[in-house]
Each structure stands twice: as C-alpha cells, then as structure tokens.
C-alpha cells in the first residue's frame, strides 16, 4: 500500500490549498439569508415624527443599505447608489447606523440622497439584529419580506452586475 502514500499526501495538500485559497474572507455567510428580515420601527432622519418599518415595503423587492456619515467606503459607493436611484432600479432604504454626531441630514443635503427613506439607528440595535459587522452592508429583501442577499463592502458596477442583477432577475424585479 505504500506506493499510494505519495498520492494520499498530495491529495491532503491539495485539500488544504483548495480550502484556504478559495475562502474569500469577505464572504461571511449570513444566517439571515432565506429568513424573514428582522422587524423594526425607527424614526426618519430629518423628520423624527415619521417612521419606517420593513412592513411598509411588503409586496416590493427593496434594498436595505446600512451606512454611516463617518464611513469612508460608504462615500465611495454613494455615486453608484445615486445612479441606481436616478434610474429607479430598486427602492433603496438607507439605515443610518450609529450616527452619534447626527451628521446624516446635513451630509445628504450636501451630496444628494439616493434613499427613499433614511431610518435612524442611533444605538446600532437594529444593525445587531441584521448581523451588521461594519458599514457599508447591503441586503436585498423580497416581496414576502425575506432576506435574499447580503453584501459586505461597497457596491460598484461590477459587484452589481455579478451579484445583484442575477438575484434581482430571479426575484422578478
């Protein structure tokens, strides 16, 4: 049997490589995919009397974008989100996460807002419900309120084309 030893050794080696090399550290599987999006009701930035809840979006495919005014990568994807909003591709809700300095309203007024609503998650509790590890993170939620996709990091044309478009097509939106 010893003549098989080199082969066995090599297979173990390849196994390691395959496991290690193709693990993308950014791909954290979200336990929420395929489950009901956690419920919340939060006041809106700029209008504390109005509020937003995922229940408002029932029957529509929509995108929840977790961002913050202090987040640099969010500024990076801002331009692309503006394009999406202008082309009315999908309704985008921007969860304003841990904005302790309350900068969001002024910032959006200055650079423009791609969001149809900006709920304010001051203490980050809703973010925890969604398993947010950092900003920006983006979720696609379907007509039945089920999370269908989670993306960590900024969105650009390529990510959109490779990851979001096929999913949206699948959802018929």
């Amino acid at each position: 049997m010893k003549r098989w030893l080199p082969l066995v050794f090599f297979i173990v080696l390849v196994g390691f490589f395959a496991k290690g090399l193709f693990l993308d550290p950014r791909e954290v599987p979200s336990p929420f995919i395929g489950r009901q999006a956690p419920m919340f009701t939060l006041p809106l930035v700029g209008d504390a009397n109005a509020s937003f809840s995922p229940a408002d979006m029932k029957g529509r495919v929509w995108m929840l974008n977790v961002w913050a005014p202090w987040c640099v990568s969010c500024r990076q994807e801002h331009g692309f989100l503006m394009q999406l909003a202008q082309a009315r591709v999908i309704p985008i809700v921007g969860l304003n996460w841990k904005d302790k300095d309350r900068e969001a309203e002024a910032l959006l007024a200055r650079i423009g807002s791609p969001y149809m609503a900006v709920p304010e998650d001051l203490d980050g509790r809703v973010g925890i419900d969604y398993g947010v590890t950092g900003t920006p993170e983006t979720y696609i939620i379907d007509q039945a309120g089920i999370v269908r996709l989670k993306h960590i990091g900024p969105i650009g044309p390529e990510v959109w084309k490779d990851k979001f478009e096929p999913k949206l097509k699948e959802l018929g939106a």
């Binding site: 290690g20 193709f22 993308d24 550290p25 950014r26």
Partner: peptide, 18 residues
C-alpha cells in the same frame, strides 16, 4: 492565502493543473 480570491480563474486553473 487569499490572493486567489481576487482572481479565482487563475487560482482554479493553477490548482486544477497541479
């Protein structure tokens, strides 16, 4: 080790070839 993740085509080819 995550160098391949940035270019999976190369990584897959190399590993397959090896």
């Amino acid at each position: 080790v995550h160098a391949f993740a940035t270019d999976p085509a190369r990584g897959a080819f190399i590993l397959g070839f090896l």
